[in-house]
Design a protein around this nucleic acid. Structure first.
Lengths: 301, 301
DNA sequence: TAGCAACGATAGGGATACCCTATAGGTTAT
DNA sequence: ATAACCTATAGGGTATCCCTATCGTTGCTA
């Protein structure tokens, strides 16, 4: 039983004439005649009564034809669904992003993405790099935004932008009026850090070797927002990425001071499985990044 | 797009492995691999993402597979409907019958038919021979029971039984105690006849040439039942088929008297289009007639 | 009544599609 | 390093599919 055969019997039931039914199906009359005879043989039932002046579905034939029409309708829906799905920029994209980027980049990025791919809503997973890597591997995510280095077999990356690190001190701090700070000056346990697992914490420790990693978690924040508040309240100082210090996240209770050149920074990249089937969605994200307009991000795309 | 291809993608979505999916579909792995690639090409969408350790439906693929399953279900119903319809003794049979046979034969016949074909209900059309012939030709009936001769192109007949004619006189009539009557004795306008169009009326006129066909319809009955009552009330005599005089249609207000041999009779037959697709239903009717147990019918089957 | 037109079935041939085995190319596990 | 596993590709054989040509029947018409 094939879809073609089903189309044939539906056409014959409607036309009640082999030649016209064949024409409607764009085949010759013998083709349709033989195909229907074959289907009748396969099903073991005579579907049509060939009379002198008429062709008419038998009792069974009428029911079979009716059901055949339903089957054809469902098959046609398959084609329609595929047709609608041909646009790679149509349909949800599952995007992972690390905690230290998501809240600061995504509002702008989504706004920019709307221009490039208006019909591609994002499902956003905010997590740490290691978890995003797993989800990417397990096909729980389509794409992720995270900080380099990131090397994962079967996953491609593409740098998006560089983002400088800044020193953040509370209002009234001795460094309040410094214009630049050397990485080595940032030292001791006065420095507030993110909890372990966040890649940004390790990047700060790498950039400022004098910072001690305290055993207690008193000076460890769950998020950049927490740390910013702790700094503002006078608990200590910190090092944060510039993106997290843009309006409206900066305020007059803290002072943001640049490092001395070469300023420490991180490289933020897009990552996706090399076999991901919607490359145009990647392109759209790159274009959206290209459309960003923020001095905090030194674009690489 | 073929049903086979739809089966392939459903299997692959379930097994998430080309080899196992191929095995489930009873084809080789390359066959399934190529078929799916071909379908993806036809639909213009990549349905599956082939990763290192996994095979997973894409966003579109998942929807397509889901719809494919629905289409396959509908197609399978086609097969089931045909399967159920394979029994030619299952399903309604449209039976035509003439007025002078229906009320007398059918109660017994249906009872007998229940034993032969318990799942073949009858739709009964009671009409005159000419109309039954038309309905048979136009595929409005499957089969008819009527009196011979009946010759119609494309229609086959098979004799069922012979049925004698009897003279019916009212109680107290001069012939009341005769044991047999010659056809020529039945004469004049005392004889009650069916209205024109009924074949039995013509058969009586043929058997009893002395009977005059009155111009007025005073002595014409709409049905055999009407005539029987008119005889009982003393309006005249009549000639009726033996089947219409069985219990409970006979009573003590009328006398039923046979003709002198050779008794006039009619031959009742089954008729159906030669292309009718349920020959077993014909056989079942013949068997049901064979199962009749009434002295009024001299069976021929 | 002969001829013609309409219709469906059949015959025969050719193109295509389908499915197979063998194998390549890649990754994972031992 | 090797084996095992997985998917894609190549090449070839066969079955299916569809075509044209034609037959047989029926019904209509000249």
């Amino acid at each position: 039983m094939t879809l073609t055969e089903l189309r044939y019997i539906v056409a014959l039931a409607q036309e009640k004439n082999f030649s016209r039914a064949a024409e409607r199906c764009s085949v010759s009359q013998p083709t349709l005649s033989v195909a229907i005879a074959r289907l009748e043989d396969e099903l073991g039932v005579q579907l049509f009564e060939r009379g002198k002046g008429f062709v008419s579905p038998s009792l069974v034939g009428a029911r079979v034809v009716e059901q055949a029409q339903l089957a054809l309708n469902e098959a046609e829906k398959v084609r329609q669904i595929a047709q609608r799905g041909r646009d790679q920029l149509d349909g949800t994209l599952r995007l992972g992003v690390i905690h230290t980027i998501g809240p600061y980049l995504l509002p702008q990025l989504i706004h920019s993405l709307k221009n490039v791919a208006p019909n591609m809503p994002l499902v956003i997973e905010e997590n740490m790099t290691a978890n995003l890597a797993d989800m990417l591997r397990d096909n729980d995510l389509d794409v992720a935004i995270l900080a380099l280095p990131f090397d994962q077999p079967g996953v491609l990356t593409r740098p998006l932008y560089d983002e400088d690190f800044k020193v953040v001190v509370p209002c009234g701090h001795p460094w309040e009026n410094k214009t630049a700070i050397a990485p080595e000056e940032v030292a001791g346990d006065e420095v507030l850090l993110l909890k372990a697992g966040n890649c940004f914490r390790d990047q700060v420790l790498g950039a400022c070797p004098q910072v001690s990693s305290p055993e207690t978690d008193i000076r460890l924040g769950h998020s950049i927002g927490t740390i910013r508040c702790m700094v503002a309240s006078g608990l200590g100082i910190s090092v944060l990425p510039e993106g997290a210090l843009q309006h409206p996240y900066s305020n007059d209770m803290i002072r943001v001071i640049p490092f001395l050149p070469p300023q420490p920074s991180r490289r933020v990249a897009l990552a996706w499985r090399n076999c991901f089937v919607r490359p145009k969605a990647i392109d759209a994200l790159l274009a959206a990044v290209r459309g960003l307009d923020s001095p905090a991000y030194r674009l690489l795309v």
